[in-house]
Amino acid sequence: MLNLDFQKRLNHFLLDITASFQNEIIILFGPSGSGKTTTLNCIAGLSHPDEGQIELNGEKLFDGKSKVPVQKRRIGYLFQNYALFPHMTVQKNIQYGSNDDELVRQLTEVVGIQHLMTSYPHQISGGEKQRVALVRALATKPRALLLDEPFSSLDRQTREQCHQELLRLHSRWQIPIILVTHDEEEARKLGDRILPMDQGKLGSPDEFW
């Protein structure tokens, strides 16, 4: 369970987040510049709120005074451009934060990327990169998974496939998944709960529907 209750002053508004998530897929839906990525960064520990607290499975990740460093949070993060390590093969990318070969084997099988293991990121397609990044994030056995517009650069057909894979992975690895998007159809399809976000504030799911 992920509990958020924090504030952070941004350039044009105050980011003010209060929410509680179970092992579900949450969609943060809103226009660019509404604070979605900063919210993910605060949860991951890449940046920090000014005050408040972040709690994951009973452990305080941030409480104003102390903060658990990003490396110790075990929160997977899938970046918009995937951020694969360009100088490493797919296999090296996936094994970078994981030494559980059995888990890596299972994950690569589920998303069907076994044949890409010796390729470099510049040799594979956008959809394949997305799958590799997803497997890489899950291979570290994260306690929560953050996805920042992970499907935005994919064509329609590949996006559909990736949606299915994410749902399949979530049914096997039950953790809170927070997905940022501004694609309404994607939000409706994937989200157990959709939270509209504007100017640093979360709206209620009713506002979306």
Partner: peptide, 22 residues
């Protein structure tokens, strides 16, 4: 290079020294 590759490595549990050298 994209600074998110370093961020990705950090979220995967790598120390700052490991991120620098790898």
């Amino acid at each position: 290079y994209d600074s998110n590759v370093e961020n990705a490595a950090l979220t995967m549990g790598a120390s700052r020294l490991k991120v620098f050298f790898t």
